[in-house]
Design a protein around this nucleic acid. Structure first.
Lengths: 109, 109
DNA sequence: CTCCTGTCTTGAAGCTCATCTAATCAGCGA
DNA sequence: TCGCTGATTAGATGAGCTTCAAGACAGGAG
């Protein structure tokens, strides 16, 4: 769905973030600011290449629609992407986006 | 219910991040999940060693108490620390905490 | 001591978010 | 076609967050 490059960006400690960059960064960090979404992302990134929703949902004590909602937030933040194949839906991480988020916190001066 | 013969995908394993780690990570990312706080952190980390509140506040269109509140959130997340010296209060970053947050996003290889 | 400046805390209003139930969509098999 | 299962969407509710105005606190100057 979403493909943005947003490739190279100065580390936060070298150049102060402008308002636009801060707004985009806030969207990504807001998507990460929930324990369930962090665990979902962790499972997705550590699953090798992709993982089925039906393997994610049983790991939590919340309803299916709630998991679906959290996955949508991660998707709209550009951190993961998904595809339906037959009955099941599979999710995988978007490494570029994860690296970009991490680069906002780098302290390399 | 029955009929779960057809497995939808490979058995997953893993959970790189446990519930406790996810909860602590969520606190840190929640602190980063606001454009003003991201810009504040950016200014603090790019200020060399430390920066005065009086240099931060005029950069934003919100009131002083609001800036103070956001700085408190960053402080309670362990991302920055501060000290009053005379009339003014100075803030500086906590590199270890920033590196730890970034490391949570590097579980993608 | 008293006043002034800089910063933080408190309390309340308005908005956003997490979660649920119920309903809907998508695919498979009989 | 109909019915079943997996996943998402829609609507509602309660909790939490952002913001400001007003007041409190700390330190320096007179």
């Amino acid at each position: 769905m979403s493909k943005q490059d947003a490739a190279c960006c100065a580390p936060i400690s070298v150049a102060a973030l402008d308002a636009a960059g801060a707004a985009e960064g806030a969207v990504v960090f807001k998507a990460l600011a929930d324990p369930i979404r962090l665990r979902l992302l962790s499972m997705i990134t550590s699953a090798g290449d992709e993982i089925c929703v039906c393997d994610l949902t049983p790991q939590f004590d919340v309803s299916g629609p709630t998991i679906s909602h959290h996955l949508k937030v991660l998707r709209e933040a550009g951190l993961v992407d998904c595809e339906r194949r037959g009955t099941w839906v599979y999710y995988w991480p978007v490494p570029d986006r994860l690296r970009w988020a991490a680069s906002l916190l780098e302290l390399t001066r």
